[in-house]
């Protein structure tokens, strides 16, 4: 699998590695997918990178590759920002080859990472017709998670036709941030758009939302999909190639 802009792959890994330290990559002719839960089974990430999004892609037989994302992240940090990246696994090999190439082709780096034998547990995610779908700048969402974490461990997300409100309370007191739906969309990247069938009010752990925000550099906009008594879906699109979707179980009143 070759990417002209290897930095896209580095951003994917940075987006996942805090939530899941290691994961099984499923490779097929259609592309690369990954599904993994965090160790406490509260959050799940689902990654899709379609074959047509790569400069070149070939997969002769389906493979499951157990990879340490922490190690891969360390290797990818050595990559120059404009380098291209090729990932290769040879038949019957127990390692993955990560090759980087500088833009003017005067530097070539090759790394081999040992594959891991991982127990992977797969969950079926039902197609959900969410009550609310919010789109907002991903930088704004990162900022909100950071700001709300000052006040408490949990954030309550409430939606109305006018906008969306994030609030948190704790020992210090309480705080809230309300975003109003953009009425006059000039730049789509900066817009706040709320599609609502029913109002929702759901509570989530800020710590996990903040971990999801590590994937924010992938996309200028984030999608948040919400329904009562349903895990939140937080989506970052990967250009024309696919997406990273995070799911987070809500907090519930005892």
């Amino acid at each position: 699998a070759r990417l002209l802009h290897g930095s896209i792959f580095a951003k994917v890994i940075e987006g996942l590695r805090e939530l899941v330290n290691e994961a099984t990559w499923e490779c097929s002719g259609n592309g690369i997918t990954l599904q993994a839960m965090d160790s406490s089974h509260v959050a799940l990430v689902s990654l899709v990178m379609r074959s047509e999004g790569f400069e070149s892609y070939r997969c002769d037989r389906n493979m499951s590759l157990g990879i340490s994302l922490v190690s891969m992240s360390k290797v990818l940090k050595t990559m120059g920002k404009d380098d291209s990246l090729t990932i290769r696994v040879n038949d019957d090999s127990d390692s993955i080859i990560i090759a980087m190439e500088s833009q003017n082709q005067d530097k070539f780096a090759d790394y081999e990472l040992r594959l891991m034998d991982l127990d992977s547990e797969h969950l079926g995610i039902p197609d959900t017709d969410y009550s609310c779908a919010i789109k907002m700048p991903s930088s704004e969402f990162s900022r909100i998670c950071r700001d709300m974490s000052i006040m408490g461990d949990s954030v309550l997300i409430c939606t109305t036709k006018e906008g969306v409100k994030f609030s948190a309370k704790g020992d210090l007191g309480q705080g809230s941030i309300r975003l109003v739906q953009t009425t006059n969309i000039e730049k789509e990247e900066e817009a706040v758009i709320i599609e609502m069938k029913e109002a929702v009010a759901l509570t989530f752990a800020v710590r996990y939302l903040s971990m999801f925000c590590k994937a924010a550099p992938l996309s200028p906009q984030v999608g948040l999909s919400l329904s009562e008594d349903t895990p939140l879906m937080c989506e970052f699109k990967i250009a024309e190639m696919g997406h990273v979707r995070f799911y987070l179980a809500p907090k519930i009143e005892d």
Partner: peptide, 14 residues
């Protein structure tokens, strides 16, 4: 009290 639920009740185990 507010409790953190896990994902299992929401998704099917494959």
């Amino acid at each position: 009290t507010v409790l953190q639920s896990d994902l299992y009740p929401y998704f099917d185990k494959l």
